[in-house]
Simulated assay, not measured.
Amino acid sequence: MPFNDLFGNRRIKRVLISYLRNRMVPPAMLFSGGGSVNLKGFALGFAKALNCRDRKDDFCGACANCRDIDREMFPDVRLLRPDGQQYKKEQVDFIVEDQVRRPLQGERKVYILESAQRLSESSANAFLKALEEPSEATVFMLLTPSLSGILPTIQSRCQVLRFTPPAPEDIRKYLLEQGMEAEKATLLSRLSQSQRLDVIHGDHGEVLEARRSVLDVLTSLLRHEGEGDVLVELNNLNRRREAFIGYFRELVNLISLFLRDIMVLKAGGDDSLLFNMDFKEELMTLCQYSGEEKLMYLVRRMETLLRDVQRNLNAKVLTQEFIRSFTDQEPGIG
């Protein structure tokens, strides 16, 4: 699977290939982009291209090195993730010490940091040491949905590559080429416009099925019939940070899309503007429970909560703020 087989972001592909061809690989790169952008796929592809046995300035995806990188078994390519809520300083200390050692098997040592915005202040400051004195055989790739969570001092030491979410029509075409039914492909392409939902690389079935339960939650909150049940469910998830963050991000994302659909329906907008066309009738019934100002307020609150998730706000605080968005009135709303 060479670079050309990666979906979208042709400009980024050309940039990465030019680095390889010109032998001018930056010691540190920062990949930024959300939604259906496959940051991890591009990072692993570049790591494979640096160490592929069979191709020059690209990767084959089939040689022993490429296969081992995909399985996270290649000794010179390390894929790192936060240990709990944030990266621990011990994780970064290991990188600082390990990156000066020569590669064991490949041409380059590669460190890929997923969710780099979750570097704590102490781990980020420790990581600066590695960026300031990189080994010639080492490449760092930091992945983040948004640059806002990355320290300016780290950004300034990285080559920043901004990935662009694919257009809905491109997503629809891609899904159809993968054999998906036309109706489902159209629906997922509309949902992709939120630029936060990954409808390409995530579980398509889970994304579509999750909307049913989320709409039930939104219905309860707008009708003020079951806030306590929603609170109990979120509090139960609070004990497992990773499970809570994944569920909460999807919950708030989908509620934001449903709220926007309700606003479109209240304004008499065209059906083509709806994210969730298949739920139109149910959404029509919810129009009576909130005025336009309240809906706008709720959309803004959902956007704020999504940013708070990126800032690693405490799960209990996120839960309280989420429920309060629906139970409290915004100043000026009667």
Rank of each mutant, 00 (worst) to 15 (best):
V96W: 02
T327W: 05
R211G: 14
E281F: 07
N253F: 06
V160P: 06
L237P: 11
E132K: 15
E132N: 15
F248C: 12
K89F: 03
I154E: 01
R211T: 08
P168I: 01
D93A: 14
L113N: 06
L234K: 10
M180N: 12
G84R: 11
V207K: 07
D76Q: 01
L215V: 12
V317E: 01
H224M: 02
L131W: 07
L79Q: 12
G149E: 01
D203H: 00
E181V: 10
D170M: 12
I154C: 03
D76S: 00
D57F: 14
L44T: 15
Q99Y: 08
K109R: 07
D308Q: 12
E72P: 00
G106C: 06
L131I: 12
V160A: 05
Y111F: 08
L44D: 05
V199A: 11
D93P: 05
N65G: 05
V110N: 14
Q288F: 13
R301W: 04
L188M: 12
L208G: 06
A126H: 05
D76W: 03
F326L: 07
N38G: 10
E136Y: 13
P26M: 13
R300F: 01
K13W: 09
N276S: 03
R249S: 06
L237R: 13
A126Y: 11
S36Y: 06
D58E: 08
F322L: 04
E114Y: 02
L305E: 04
S18Q: 15
I323N: 02
L254K: 07
E107Y: 11
